[in-house]
Design a protein around this nucleic acid. Structure first.
Lengths: 227, 227
DNA sequence: TTGTGTATACTTGTATACTAGTATTGCACA
DNA sequence: TGTGCAATACTAGTATACAAGTATACACAA
């Protein structure tokens, strides 16, 4: 269905620059510490400094750029404290969602989650990392649905994306797809059993897998971190 | 101790405009739906449109302004979904903090929390709402400390502030100071008893008090809300 | 060869002007 | 008196130029 014209937001040059830089920063094509300038990007896009300046401001507001007067702007380094906080939020929110799912999930939710596992299994057999990654997001979205908290998926996704960006550094899935699948399988099983204590233990263990990965990245890429 | 000059961030005109507008929006001196323009604010501050434009962009990024091309900028209305999400995060995070506090809190933490309660009691006797409000923040910060999660206080404060802004509309403490004090008393008691189930029930009830207040505000000030 | 000082090139912050889209107001006609 | 259209005034987006602070490079002296 075509959106109402009144609701269509017009794209601006600033939007284009923002999306371009955001993608490059998040995919680590622009590494933390790299310096860029308004003039350089303006030239690259064939626009004036103003829309570039707006994009820089927006990226600075989400902690992706460090803009200081009269100095070259820098791609921000990772903040250990911000990662820690993000991990805490992810854990706390997802645990609460699963507590609710434990009480409220219906057979429809269970069926859908089981279908998710089948899709994941196929992606593993096909060694399709990208597909598995997308299915991972779907799975957690469906867990939000099962916990009657669909509106919380944006929080989960946002915090997950922050760590996903970090994991690009190790150029490997933070845990083998098999491990993740096993965790997901266990979560679905405990949910079906309506065993809250085991469910919480399962999701906690699942999310904790990344702790050692992040610690390892912090050691091997110390210069990408603020201190 | 004077901060290192290298670390002092220079204040810009944009910073001044941002702080001014932020304060007025958050304290509801500028009501949701009100229209402002870059030119108008620039004139008021005796600056050009550019620093005002930067402040507008920053405020838009934290959902306080709605900026659309060629239309007057609006103070954003409250988003029910955003409030819901914020409440969820607040609940999930604070419950997790208290679970940790239940395990880790020391007698030093307990002493400090009891001192907090004494200060709150004094503020109540003095009918000092403002003081009590500040002590409320202190109390929750000390709970974070007790849960070995000091770094999470910023998340608590941020989500709390969002709802505090809403409560300005009812021009009354969302729950009488007495009620809040009783809740805080109960939380400290259950923490000292290391009774996790009762502690979680206490904090959940404490945080849920605002649900009916928010629902009431939504009815009496429907035009301040997005639909 | 090293250290210091100065000049230049770099950067962002801000001012001003122009463009294009949207809203409001006023006038004319039925 | 009501409606429709056109004109005007309003708005944000963008371009360009200037100012001021910072970094780098080069030259000179010890």
């Amino acid at each position: 269905m075509a959106p109402s014209l009144a609701n269509v937001q017009r794209r601006t040059n600033a939007d284009d620059v923002f999306d371009f830089l955001h993608d490059r920063i998040v995919s680590l094509k622009l590494l933390p510490g790299t310096r860029i300038s308004e003039v350089e990007i303006a030239r690259q896009f064939g626009v004036s400094r103003q829309p570039v300046r707006e994009a820089f401001i927006r990226l600075a507001n989400i902690d992706l750029l460090l803009v200081r007067p009269q100095r070259a702007t820098e791609i921000r380094r990772f903040s250990s404290e911000k990662i820690k906080r993000s991990r805490f939020i992810r854990m706390a929110v997802e645990c609460e969602i699963l507590r609710r799912a434990c009480r409220n999930a219906t057979s429809l939710h269970h069926r859908r989650l089981n279908r998710d596992l089948e899709s994941q299994s196929r992606a593993i057999r096909n060694r399709d990392v990208k597909r598995f990654h997308a299915l991972d997001y779907d799975f957690h979205r469906h867990l939000c649905d099962a916990g009657d908290s669909a509106y919380m998926f944006s929080t989960i996704a946002e915090n997950k994306a922050l760590v996903d960006r970090l994991c690009v550094l190790s150029l490997a899935e933070p845990a083998a797809m098999d491990e993740l699948y096993d965790d997901h399988r266990r979560i679905v099983d405990e949910l079906e059993n309506r065993d809250e204590a085991s469910l919480i233990a399962a999701i906690t263990e699942h999310l904790s897998r990344l702790d050692s990965v992040i610690a390892g990245i912090r050691k091997s890429h110390a210069d990408f971190f603020e201190d």
